[in-house]
Amino acid sequence: MTDAAIQPDAPVATAQAGDTAADSYHYALMRRAINEIDSADAPLTLDDLASRMKMSPAHFQRLFSAWVGVSPKRYQQYLTIDHARSLLAHRHTTLDTALQTGLSGTGRLHDLFLTWEAMSPGEYAAGGDGLMIRWSQIPTPFGPALVMVTDKGICGIAFTAETGPGAAWADMAARWPKAAFKEDDAAIRQLAGPVFAGRGETRLHMLGAPFQIKVWEALLQIPSGHVATYSDIARRIGADRAVRAVGTAVGRNPVSFLIPCHRAIRKSGGLGGYHWGLPVKRAMLAWESARTDSL
């Protein structure tokens, strides 16, 4: 499989706000804005940011609002490194009480209903032997994503804006070394398209070792707009001393965003790592925080 075989179409600048193509186009702009913010010595004004993006302030403001619903100044605050520390101080979810307080059932993806099934130990050991996996790249609010599905549901989501499509393909396909793969753009868009629009029921088909599955279950208890530490997750699954192993399992999550590994951060408030690039993780946390604040 070559990079060219899965190279996504260029974003369509004329897409209507509110659909995933428009969101993906806006994320490409946000990615550039993140780079500008990171390289600046001080906070940037609207005029500064717009100039660096080679856009008029009014047009830049409109695109920002269409994507995230807050001003560029406010969103810039969400993108700073200190935002993770603020989340830790004010929206730190203790996983043992999340279900009791009702947090983990709210604010996921609007009214999205998520169900999932883990592959059996035999299926896991077989490396996908006899399994047909359909795939395609689709636009998402966080840039293009490689999405893979089985007959039972979505089995992989990889964001390619930072890693590139070829590296994402090699990473995801290697998890099922004996599976057969078929490109099926229509099927993927029909199944995965509603996921990023926050509509309907979504089925996941998870491939992972028992320890990894436990970690991913804990991640599902972190509500949108909140965070938990790797230590919290370790305690939740009864493996207090296995923080490093938890971090590895978080990074191996095959269905990014839906199983929200981006909501796991360090005790210090640092973001830690993210398998598909820290700019994507920061954008996800900022995007969710803005929406949580607007409720």
Rank of each mutant, 00 (worst) to 15 (best):
R252S: 13
D96V: 10
A179Y: 08
D293A: 14
A66R: 02
P223C: 06
P223F: 02
I154Q: 02
L146Y: 06
V149P: 03
A84F: 15
K182L: 13
E201V: 15
A174N: 05
T140F: 05
P11S: 09
F159N: 05
G277V: 02
Q7L: 06
A180W: 13
A66Y: 09
L295C: 02
R52P: 07
R266E: 12
L44C: 13
K281H: 12
L87K: 12
A234V: 03
V12Y: 05
L219M: 13
R32M: 03
R235H: 10
L278S: 12
R199N: 01
L44K: 02
S256I: 13
L29C: 04
Y27Q: 08
T14P: 05
S120A: 14
D9T: 04
S51C: 11
G238N: 07
S65T: 09
I154E: 02
I237F: 09
A170R: 10
T248Q: 07
T292Y: 03
A264S: 09
L79C: 14
R62N: 14
A179F: 14
L87V: 11
E36I: 12
M1E: 03
W169C: 00
S65W: 01
I222A: 00
P57D: 07
T202S: 12
I265S: 00
A290F: 01
E117V: 14
L146F: 08
G225Y: 00
G225D: 00
V246Y: 07
E201Q: 15
I138D: 00
A290C: 06
L88N: 08
L46F: 04
H226W: 05
M206L: 15
R235E: 03
D48M: 14
H262M: 04
Q16L: 09
R252L: 13
L114K: 01
P210R: 07
L87W: 08
G270E: 10
M119K: 10
F113N: 13
Q16I: 13
T248C: 07
G18H: 07
Q190S: 12
